[in-house]
Nucleic acid binder design. Structure first.
Lengths: 234, 234
DNA sequence: TCTATATGCGAACGCCGTTCGTGTCAAGTA
DNA sequence: TACTTGACACGAACGGCGTTCGCATATAGA
């Protein structure tokens, strides 16, 4: 129970328990909220509140909410270990890196949404990951252009998959609602001329949380399979 | 110049120029704003304003902003023609459909962002597209599960690509800013131990609006290449 | 000790989606 | 024709958001 101070009370110069703000501290606090309550809970107000100050104070250390988002994302990628490159296992190692990225993004629900609008990679960890993937693709025999395009597609798909997964698992959409939607879809399709959607009707069982990682692996395998074929033809 | 009516003036029963609201009209109006000013301009207030009413009135015809988003998206997909299926050209036809989807999404800047959180496809046109792609994949020799996974990955990637493209081209991020960011990235990389990022440093020229569709085609070719290989092995 | 500069941050602006309660109109009833 | 009733439209307000402005305070310098 917070009780307001009597009017004659003066605060000490700086509350001992309140460390100096810094960019570092702002980002760390934001990450705490992100991990606990998801990206939508990370607002300037909420971060400021957690630091026992007002939103305006954050702008001294972070120029933007967008910048804060990027800083959080880069830090999260920093937690993902990169394997020692081994040219013979290039495809496996690419998969390993992307799996790590997904895992990290899922641990911070909704961060993928942010990754998303960060068009130009600037953070040091984003660069490290980009370079690692590119180097592996080149080691696999791809040209620079091919590696660039492939890296782009892989990162795009990985972010997309991670975002889908985090929306699904975090509270952003509740299971009951999704189930209802699925049922409505089935009902709708069944109400139409029989067999208007022969394939769609059989799909229900393939999409659930259990199959999520299978879908990811499948997509990677297909894409990397295509790449190997291309590299072999070079 | 709008002059307020004198207090004794009564409006006629219903302004002749103001047609009855309807779900149809709401969606159509929203699409107009979307096409003109992008998804972020489509707010309940803005749509209501365009219909010369208050935001509360829209809720009689649309239960949600989310529902409005879904309705817009489904309608946009409705504009994309589906080819007459030809089993021999299944891969080409899949590409054709996805290209159509991208084109439609780019015409309505930012709509891909919406497509994005629509986890369960319910709209009739979304279903039609899903069925068409699935049918082609099955015609290509894939099992139901393989087709399901492949369709999922393709749609995920297509939305991701379209979203990236629309952010790039619509005013959501201006070119000067992107260029600045790119330059900062280069400077940063050059400031590090030489050749810490040998591949990333050479990347600049591959990412621009001109290469966008090349990147899309490349990704599709790789993925479909992997699929064909899989189908051949079946 | 007094002044000048720098910093912290409360309050406010203009957006957003959504809800509630009221005022208005049209159809039904006497 | 006059009144009642039910449904609908929608203005205003709520609680959120990112961001800015300018004042009050605290620190450093004279």
């Amino acid at each position: 129970m917070e009780v307001p101070n009597p009017p004659w009370h003066r605060e000490p110069r700086r509350r001992a328990s309140k460390p100096q703000l810094s960019r570092e501290l702002v980002v760390k606090t934001a990450l705490g909220i992100l991990a606990a309550d998801g990206i939508d809970a990370v607002s300037m107000r909420r971060v400021a509140q957690a630091l026992d100050t007002g939103p305006a104070s954050l702008y001294a250390h972070v120029s933007n909410k967008d910048e804060l988002d990027e800083l959080m994302f880069d830090r999260i990628l920093g937690e993902v270990p990169l394997p020692q490159p081994d040219a013979d296992r290039w495809a496996d190692q690419v998969k390993e890196i992307l799996r790590g990225q997904v895992k990290a993004m899922l641990a911070y629900p909704g961060i993928a949404k942010v990754a998303w609008r960060t068009m130009v990679p600037v953070g040091p960890n984003v660069l490290r990951h980009g370079e690692a993937v590119l180097a592996l693709l080149r080691a696999g025999g791809l040209s620079l252009e091919q590696a660039a395009f492939a890296g782009d597609a892989l990162s795009l798909y990985t972010k997309a998959y991670a975002y889908e997964g985090s929306v699904w698992s975090s509270g952003e959409v509740d299971q009951a609602d999704v189930a209802l939607r699925g049922k409505q879809m089935m009902d709708y399709m069944n109400s139409l001329p029989p067999q208007a959607f022969p394939n769609m009707l059989q799909l229900g069982s393939f999409f659930s949380e259990e199959t999520a990682s299978d879908r990811f692996e499948f997509a990677l395998d297909m894409f990397l399979g295509g790449l190997s074929h291309l590299a072999a033809g070079n």
